[in-house]
């Protein structure tokens, strides 16, 4: 991070990745690069395995083919302790927040610190309050996860993700199901955390508008392939019909409104069978 050309530095590189679940091919020989210090978004319709990609980067799943390198280390060749050491430098924000429900907010944010450091409780307290202050929820420290709204839970999870000062944060659908205000708060937080802490961010989302507002670079995935990539502007002006449909949200286009089925008329007339 200290060298001058860090902006050109690739932190995560995905090479020729293939992954399938059962007979379904989720990724088919894709390659992506994530630059250090930038916000890169992966977009695509639901069910294209965007979350799977994050789990692959975090080493929770193993690819069928290809490699993923994070900060010069091949994630899937690491031994368990090395992988865990790498994960300490990654933060992941789950869609649900994934807060531990048997602890209050304070203990949740303190959790990684208590697990991985030997800091005294008073130092942990200082750190936890700093992180909570950063997400604006210092006042909610005594609440239990079930008392939090979805947006608050995500902000607490964000505070927990930055507790160990990671080099990178993976966001899994951070905007889904948020009201406009909490959405705005989250967009602002992701942007400012990235700039202030010098983080690298990977956002997985299908929310076109807000993601393109903060992303530096966007990959659009569909059917296991990359169908478009570029800066938000380039994507907006993409010539690909598919990308256009995704960005504008048209009901029919290259992606059909109907799920594949046999002919409608035939189906209606074949009344003998139940299904």
């Amino acid at each position: 991070m200290d060298n001058s050309d860090s902006s050109q530095d690739i932190l995560v590189s995905v090479r020729n990745l293939s992954f399938s679940r059962g007979n379904q091919k989720i990724f088919d020989d894709i390659s992506l690069d994530f630059e250090r210090g930038k916000i890169t978004a992966i977009m695509g319709p639901s069910g294209t395995g965007k979350t799977t990609l994050l789990k692959l980067i975090g080493g929770q799943l193993f690819p069928d083919q290809g490699s993923i390198t994070v900060d010069g280390q091949n994630v899937h060749k690491l031994r368990r302790t090395e992988l865990y050491n790498l994960r300490k430098r990654l933060g992941m924000l789950f869609q649900s927040g994934a807060l531990l429900t048997d602890m209050n907010v304070y203990d949740n944010v303190a959790f990684p610190l208590r697990e991985h450091t030997h800091l005294t409780e008073s130092m942990i307290r200082t750190l936890v309050l700093m992180k909570l202050q950063a997400v604006g929820l210092r006042g909610a420290r005594n609440m239990m996860p079930n008392e939090l709204s979805g947006g608050m839970a995500r902000r607490i999870a964000l505070a927990r993700a930055i507790a160990l000062d990671p080099m990178m944060i993976l966001y899994d659908e951070p905007f889904t199901g948020q009201d406009p205000i909490s959405m705005g708060v989250l967009v602002h937080l992701i942007k400012s955390l990235n700039n202030i802490l010098g983080l690298t961010s990977i956002i997985v989302s299908h929310d076109v508008h807000d993601t393109s507002a903060i992303a530096d670079y966007i990959y659009v995935l569909s059917g296991g392939k990359i169908v478009g990539e570029g800066t938000p502007k380039e994507i907006q002006n993409s010539e690909s019909e598919w990308v256009q449909q995704f960005m504008t949200g048209a009901a029919d286009g290259p992606v059909h409104f109907h799920y594949p089925a046999k002919d409608y008329v035939d189906d209606l007339l074949s009344s003998g069978k139940r299904y």
């Binding site: 929770q60 994960r87 649900s96 807060l99 531990l100 429900t101």
Partner: peptide, 22 residues
Amino acid sequence: GLMKATEQLSGMEMMAVDPIKR
């Protein structure tokens, strides 16, 4: 089961905490 369903176990793994041990 609920910890698994709410991604708490997965989240722990990503925080480099082994959910089995913890």
